[in-house]
Design a protein around this nucleic acid. Structure first.
Lengths: 148, 148
DNA sequence: TATTGTTATACTCTATAACTATA
DNA sequence: TATAGTTATAGAGTATAACAATA
């Protein structure tokens, strides 16, 4: 290859790129088919579900998802029009808007998440030995930390 | 969680989704900054470089990249206008078009690939022990095979 | 003055459908 | 008739800039 990468490294590189690309594709297709959701919309729902009744400020959510505020406004409007989330003025800062998941949104999110996990299970979890799964978990956590 | 997934599995799931999302983001940003290339355009270049002088038929390339033919035509036109690839009628099938990488395109591709590998090295390869790298390589190859 | 959030706008990417040319 | 490839077109998603409201 003559690119300053060993065959061993290249194999790991190629496996990572291929598997993550294909997985991303399968996950996005599943979200679209299940509930016509994009990846970003799904992440909005997961974050709001985690926050519970407290909700999350728009600016905070945009930072967490690494999207522009205008882009977040667009996606949040989509979910709001479907009745899955709400937006309210913040109590302590009149400039702020707090987004919250609705009971309907939470029910849908749970259903979608279950299907989502099934995709991950079939293509990932079921393919690994327990020891491999442990190694991957700790190694990929380190990779994610490095990238954050 | 009550979603039919064990804490151990959830940890592996979360690490995989987080690391692959962040890596994809880093890779795409790097390609854009280095040479204003999209992921698809980069994959076109890599495939054509692999094929060498023989080139690849458009229909074949579209199948390999899992994109529509019209979408491929658009991206190929972008690369062609920059002089990185060419399109010629196929010799044996007058309906066919064969895409090939140009010497300029190959030089650029090598440069971009080197930078791309650097990103992967910093965020992935450098973070792993040799034993972890071996485990990840074989495990993720199995994941990719499952998804194909 | 600085920050929050939305909107107007423009741009990129992708796909479907219509079309031409060849098998 | 079927296949290869392109083009016209439309739609989704994202970002920048301008704006109104509040700190």
């Amino acid at each position: 290859m003559a690119t300053g990468i060993t065959p061993d490294e290249f194999r790991a590189y190629a496996a990572l790129i291929a598997s993550s690309t294909l997985l991303q594709r399968a996950v996005e297709q599943n979200l679209r088919e299940q509930a016509d959701l994009t990846q970003v919309q799904f992440e909005i729902l997961m974050n709001l579900a985690n926050a519970g009744g407290a909700g999350i400020r728009m600016a905070h959510l945009a930072d967490a998802l690494i999207v522009s505020r205008s882009g977040l406004s667009y996606q949040v409007a989509q979910l709001e029009s479907r009745g899955w989330i709400t937006r309210e003025r913040s109590a302590d800062d009149e400039r702020g808007i707090v987004a919250r998941i609705t009971p309907l949104g939470e029910r849908m999110r749970q259903r979608v998440f279950a299907g989502h996990v099934e995709v991950v299970r079939r293509s990932f979890l079921d393919v690994l030995e327990p020891a491999e799964r442990k190694t991957l978990a700790s190694a990929l956590e380190r990779v994610a930390d490095r990238l954050r």
